[in-house]
Every structure is written in structure tokens, then in C-alpha cells.
């Protein structure tokens, strides 16, 4: 069993629109080992959700995916047909979505929807599937699991529905789970519970987990590795410690200034913000996509941006050699 479960190299996602092509994901690379959590961080429109959909093969028909390498457990996802991809989806790789309120089908019971994932991939009896569903509902912290099976989504709260979504993703005991902002639509106390649940399950089942989020607080709590995305590129990637202790890219540093730190940020002190907006991704972008908003921007930023590697495999894309020169 290979240790690395997912390898992504030079992944691009292009969306044809009226005027031209929107390059939503522009050549990103990362890999993930079993039992590891990768957090993909970035603001809206940075391409993080499309990256996860691209890995799952869930992009719409019109959207074009391309990659130098896209391997799941040694299997080339770019080469396999739609049927083989479908056999993987929900079985060995599963996804949890942002909107628990609308991600469950209103017409079917929780039990039907949980068992469906199992029936699609395994030969199990109805009773066997239901038994497994009850076990998993218990595992994700749902009480009275047996009676929940007969309930419909509209009878459950948002937090419960997200737990059901997680249980559903776990039905076939996948090796990789991609969670796309699983806590964004939930209130703060429920967020914490769901994150703890994901972290526990990951440890218990040796899952590889990709967590897509824009919430750095979430990242700090759960991540082994972090990839910061900006305008369709990974601008900085490294271990959680590297990113939080020594953020190199000016964008990452800007993000860090936006979050209050308990004990350091004084009451009433204004939090940081990053001025400006994300550039249009229609057509090509010359040079650094962040330069319009960057305080370190120079004329050199219009040229091709080198990818730099600091110690310990900490990577970032910037014209300035920030990590070694200690520019601040």
C-alpha cells in the first residue's frame, strides 16, 4: 500500500465563458499521504472549491480539467473513464459539501440516502446497510440513530444534517475525504464540534483529509499541511507550523494580520485587511497576480514569478527572497 494517496501536478481548470476562458485554477501541485490533513486556504474565487471538485471528477461538462499528473493511490485519474471514476467516487474517495441544508435530497429519508452510497459500491443486504448506517450515525455523534433513519432532511437541524453528510461520506470507508468548507454554513459552537469530529475520525480511520476553507482559525486547529491559494495558484505551501510561524508570501502575511490572536490583539485594536480585490482570471495573467494589492510590489513583479523553496520544503511564489532575507 503506497504511502502517498493523492498526487496532483500542474492541475489547471479552465471555464469557457462568453468572452474567452476563465483560468480558475492555474497550475497547482500538491500531494497527500494517508492519515494527513491538507488545508487549502484562500478567499472566495481563489479556485479552492474547483480544485476539490476537479480531484473528485465532479466539474461540469463544460469545464476543462488538465494535469501533468493526477494520481489517486497510483491510479491515473486523468486516464480512467467515467465509469471507473464513478466506481471510485463515494467508495474510496468521498466528499462533504459546504451546504448541509441543501446537500441532502428532500424526497428521501436519511436512511435511504445513507444506504444508497453503500448499495452503489458493495453487495450488502438492506438490513446490513441499515445496521452500518446506524453505527456510523452513532460515530458522528447522532443520538437515537435508529429513529433518524426514517426521518427526512427537513426534520433535522443544520448541524445534524452536516453530521449525516459526514456519515454518508464514511459509508464505504473511503481513504480520502475532501471537505469543502464543511463548517461555513454552521454556527460557531457547531463548527467546533464538526471540526473535532473530522479530526477524530481522521485519526481513528487513518484518512487522508483535504479541508477547503477560508477560515485560518480552522486551519490552525486541524491542519498538518497548508496550501494558500490566490487567484488560482498555490502561492505558499508548507507544514502548518511553517505557515503559521514563518509566513513568507505577502498574501499569507496579510491573511494572518486579519485574524485576532488571543492575548496579543488588544480590545478595540483594528484588525488588518488586504486592500483591493482579486484580479480577473479571464485571459492570462503576466507576473504576480497579487502585485496590485501587495505592499512589496516592484517593477520586477510584472515578470515571471519564481517558486522558491525555504528550509523544510516550505514553498512560496514570490519575486522577493523573503524567507532568507527577512524582509518585513
Amino acid at each position: 500500500m503506497a504511502d502517498t494517496i493523492l498526487t496532483v501536478e500542474d492541475l489547471t481548470v479552465d471555464i469557457p465563458i462568453g468572452a474567452g476562458t476563465l483560468h480558475a485554477v492555474r497550475g497547482i501541485s500538491f500531494d497527500l499521504k494517508r492519515g494527513e490533513t491538507l488545508c487549502i486556504v484562500g478567499e472566495s474565487g481563489s479556485g479552492k472549491s474547483l480544485t476539490s471538485l476537479a480531484v473528485m471528477g465532479l466539474l461540469g461538462k463544460r469545464i476543462k480539467r488538465d494535469a501533468a499528473k493526477l494520481e489517486f493511490d497510483g491510479k491515473d485519474l486523468a486516464a480512467i473513464g467515467p465509469n471507473e471514476m464513478r466506481a471510485l467516487r463515494g467508495d474510496r474517495m468521498a466528499m462533504i459539501f459546504q451546504e448541509p441544508m441543501t446537500s441532502l435530497n428532500p424526497a428521501y429519508t436519511i436512511g435511504d440516502q445513507l444506504c444508497e452510497a453503500l448499495h452503489l459500491h458493495r453487495k450488502v443486504s438492506k438490513a446490513g446497510a441499515e445496521k452500518h448506517a446506524v453505527e456510523l450515525l452513532g460515530k458522528v455523534g447522532i443520538t437515537a440513530a435508529e429513529s433518524r433513519l426514517k426521518q427526512y432532511p427537513h426534520q433535522l437541524s443544520g448541524g445534524l444534517r452536516q453530521r449525516v453528510m459526514i456519515a454518508m461520506a464514511l459509508m464505504c470507508e473511503p481513504e480520502l475525504i475532501i471537505a469543502d468548507e464543511p463548517t461555513t454554513a454552521l454556527d460557531v459552537t457547531i463548527q467546533a464540534q464538526i471540526l473535532r469530529l473530522l479530526a477524530d475520525l481522521k485519526r481513528e480511520m487513518n484518512l487522508a483529509l483535504i479541508l477547503v476553507t477560508h477560515d485560518l482559525g480552522v486551519v490552525a486547529r486541524i491542519a498538518d499541511k497548508v496550501a494558500v491559494m490566490y487567484a488560482g495558484e498555490i502561492v505558499e505551501a508548507g507544514t502548518a507550523a511553517q505557515i503559521f510561524d514563518n509566513p513568507a508570501h505577502p498574501y499569507t502575511r496579510g491573511l494572518m494580520r486579519c485574524i485576532p490572536v488571543p492575548g496579543k490583539t488588544k480590545p478595540g485594536e483594528p484588525l488588518g485587511s488586504i486592500p483591493g480585490i482579486v484580479p480577473s482570471l479571464v485571459g492570462g495573467i503576466e507576473g504576480c497576480a497579487f502585485r496590485e494589492r501587495c505592499e512589496l510590489a516592484t517593477a520586477a513583479c510584472r515578470k515571471t514569478v519564481p517558486e522558491r523553496t525555504a528550509k523544510g520544503g516550505h514553498r512560496y511564489r514570490c519575486v522577493h527572497d523573503i524567507a532568507s532575507a527577512k524582509v518585513a
Binding site: R86, T102, S103, N105, A107, L120
Partner: peptide, 26 residues
Amino acid sequence: NADYIRTAHAKGAGAGRVLFKHALRN
């Protein structure tokens, strides 16, 4: 376009099943 259709795809349901079991009923 509903989210639960995407969920059905993510489970590994085939196109026909998504169309007639998950979509048409609603």
C-alpha cells in the same frame, strides 16, 4: 443545479440514477 444532485454524483451514482431517482422525483 441543486446541491443534492452534486451529492448524488459524489456518492458515485450513475447519470440515469441521478436523473430519474434524485432529480425527476423533485
